[in-house]
Write a protein that binds this DNA or RNA. Structure first.
Lengths: 209, 209, 209, 209
DNA sequence: CATGAATGAGTGTTCATTCAT
DNA sequence: TATGAATGAACACTCATTCAT
């Protein structure tokens, strides 16, 4: 699917505002105004506000599907290292696409049968499958323990990142970094998340501290 | 603050609907109808929809503040056990008050300067302080390692629970328990969360597997 | 069904405007403005524009159902006289309720499955049944011929009235009475219609000229 | 006036949709889509939606002007027979051009000063004049009565046909022919109308039954 | 000559809130 | 104190039309 420049402008603005204020909390007028386009364009291009959300989600979610194929092929690298690479990859995507992930976190909560729910579900299942491949791979080589609850580990992985992204105010305050600029802050939490999650996975997967 | 029966009915309904559909996704008419009261009552009793949310949050959040005072006093119990008790306590509250926690997850994402944001912040800080006391206590006795990133562990604790609560559909599907009734499902995730989180905290705090 | 004064004001205005410009050609804002009420009142009172139309139609159509019960009971009056009374009654209603009949003529044309179509159908069937009773009565006494196509006579009755009501401009012009005031004009066409239709029915029903 | 193929396609579609849903009930997008042309074409070719209606009406109305010149010239045919021919002609046009006549019926009701109103008026006057010539001709030969209200007879002629065309649902139901296919139904009402109207005119014009 | 893109006005409806009682 | 009635603003969306190409 190819989008025109104006469509992309609308989608970018929508991503930002949906991330900030939620779907129902954002009016098409808000989006149109901030994107500098006519209100009617949104219906014209996307059919409806809801369709805009879905198309936006689809476009972005493609970029957020974790890929482990290359990792799996490299036989000289230990599985723990591969998991580390995946974690860093995931953390990068999360921190780099905060607006999108805020949308996902919020809409995930909502119990509705919209197309969006299915899109989120599909993305989560794709990412779960990627992690699974890696962990099962490590288990086969004996590098990882048996009896690992992969689903729970995934919940921890995603949940921990979500927490940091969604409660930045809180995190800034308890860390005494209220005035740090966003770029530096992102760098910081990227590092923090990377270290913390790698540690968690290492001890859980390998039993070593 | 004392609330009349009608006010409580409104707040209960509001909690449920805000949890399901979010703040902007829920109209005062929805609440009034489901609570069986006049629409005007909500403005009349609470001043506005937003004030209702804040008063609701305040009322419920009091019940969700973790308490560790009693735990700390008991000198015969190991700190790891105390942490376990806290985890179980937290998990119980989370699973038992899903509607409220969904509200919190969602509104946390929203970047607005409302009173609610401050209330959420305060609650999170209270709960962080509780965990901190316990972990620092354990560190003083030498039971726990030094250099533990308590804030990150808290993020993992809350984030993991949030993930399971908010993506029940996904969890049911990947676990092949689509048709399990809610009560049993809650029991199951309570157990899963308890085991998983205790394990994580143990290995991180004590270096033992 | 009881309506408040404001509701009746809305319905009256709606009747007038729907009659003049049709359903799609009349906006709820037009109605609200002319009735001197807030736009939201229409949805508030009637649920929707379409429901307003249906409720309006129902209210008015009750007054437009022809009644022949009393006529049938009077045994001293000839059936032709009874038919004359019915014709005069019908003509009076038609000329007196032009706005409503214009609505009916227009909406009858529209092929849609709305509730309105059923309401119109029901009214037409009720009125057909009334005529039928009278004609069949006259046939039983031998006063009227056999083999009368009642449905076609009804079409002629209603159709002729509809023509005069809907093409007043034309009628005024070909009769050289462009500037006659409405009251007098109504009186005139009432008389014309009465004479013409009675004549038609007489010759068809009795074979006498 | 010559129209290109595309213009004719637009006019045909417009006739159909205006007939079904009325002028305001039909959007230029509906027409463009069904005709398979670009939306802008309508404004481009016809200037505006309203102009399209007028040009459509003009084109079609030419075919609907009754012609009596040939009838009048034939001196060997009785005037009643000539009236019969005219009635059959009129019925054929009406039943064969239902979409157009529905437009006319509907727009006739509308009280607006558009060009369309004048076009309708002109057509009605032309057709009235045709009938008049025939009836006056018959009166001159003594074949028809004096004191015939030609305008009312015209109203009956047009009105009766309009009724049958516009309330097909009703007619099908009271005749128990709900499932008859359209072609057969048209044939039926053509016959019914022809018989009924000829009978009416005969008794009114000649005093014979 | 033809059209995809774009627009401002307008559509019916719902919103949180207020007011008279 | 409590509430049915009412309101103006906002909602998502569609309209007929225009314009650059």
């Amino acid at each position: 699917m190819e989008y025109s420049e104006k469509q992309l402008a609308i989608m970018d603005t929508a991503e930002k505002l949906f991330g900030q204020n939620g779907f129902s909390g954002t009016s098409v007028r808000d989006i149109a105004q901030e994107a500098g386009v006519n209100v009617a364009m949104i219906s014209y291009y996307f059919g409806s506000k809801e369709k805009l959300m879905e198309m936006l989600f689809e476009q972005k979610s493609n970029k957020l599907t974790l890929m482990v194929e290359n990792l799996l092929q490299d036989e000289n690298v230990k599985y723990l290292q591969k998991v580390y690479v995946l974690i860093d990859d995931y953390v990068d995507r999360f921190v780099g696409q905060q607006a999108f992930h805020k949308i996902m976190i919020r809409e995930q909560v909502t119990e509705n049968g919209t197309g969006l729910a299915n899109q989120i579900l599909a993305l989560k299942k794709r990412n779960l499958a990627s992690i699974k491949k890696l962990i099962v791979g490590g288990q086969k080589t004996g590098e990882f323990k048996k009896n690992i609850d992969i689903v729970m580990m995934m919940a921890t992985l995603v949940g921990t990142m979500s927490q940091l992204i969604t409660s930045q105010c809180y995190y800034r305050e308890v860390s005494n970094i209220e005035n740090m600029d966003d770029a530096e802050f992102n760098k910081l939490i990227r590092k923090k998340l990377s270290t913390h999650l790698k540690h968690l996975f290492k001890v859980v997967l390998t039993n070593e501290a």
